[in-house]
Amino acid sequence: MKAFEQWVAFQTIFQREVRRYTRIWLQTLVPPMITTGLYFVIFGNLIGQRIGPMDGFAYMEFIVPGLIMMAVITNSYSNVVSSFYNTKFQRCIEEMLVSPMPNYVILLGYVLGGVSRGLAVGALVTGLAILFMDLHIHNLWITGLVISMTAVLFSLGGFVNAVFANSFDDISIIPTFVLTPLTYLGGVFYSIQMLPDAWQWVSKANPILYMVNAFRYGFLGTSDIPVGASLVLIAVFSAGLFAYCMYLLNRGVGIRT
């Protein structure tokens, strides 16, 4: 397949993904706004005023980056896992398998679809945050880079989950039992400086902590973790997952007999 044809095929998959989640916007774009809005009201405004400052910032200011990141992680992951599993379930994955598209085009199409939903939700939630506080961004480039790289990483994770999923239960197990606990324990609501030393070390084994802190640095200019280390970690995980996805696609795991 020529480069231009691959580009057309990539656009086709990406546009189909965008069409899919915008068609069902009530299920994909609105719920994260409601959930995060409730966090802003309850934790940020009501409880936050009693908690007092965190790392020198109002509690609302402190949790906003983590909550945006949480929405991006959840949505980029769930977009790819549900969409790709659905193509397996409805057998329309065969449309892609019989076509001459290289596997990396399929993968990139789905990943960019997941990234776009993650970033769309991130933008909506950020817009919502502006209603509750004056939003300042310390470093726009770091903010954009971290959020985009994180969306890529979790889109790839969603793809792996979908490849192995054999039922709708299988696509909710990882988000429920792995992603949600890791996100809540990833420094969204607190600084790990508050924890005893032992728990700080345990927390540092949680990759989401690095992403939340790097993103918070972009907003507030403060982080529990060096930003460079976070970026390297996200890049290494993404490269590893990309290679693993390609291996699964080339072998036909979960998609070919």
């Binding site: 397949m1 020529k2 231009f4 044809e5 691959q6 057309v8 095929a9 656009q11 086709t12 998959i13 189909r16 069409r19 449309e95 892609m96 076509s99 001459p100 598209m101």
Partner: peptide, 14 residues
């Protein structure tokens, strides 16, 4: 959309 999407997967311009 189903037919046009399949065309796109074969690299046919829009």
């Amino acid at each position: 959309d189903i037919v046009a999407t399949q065309a796109g997967m074969y690299g046919l311009p829009r």
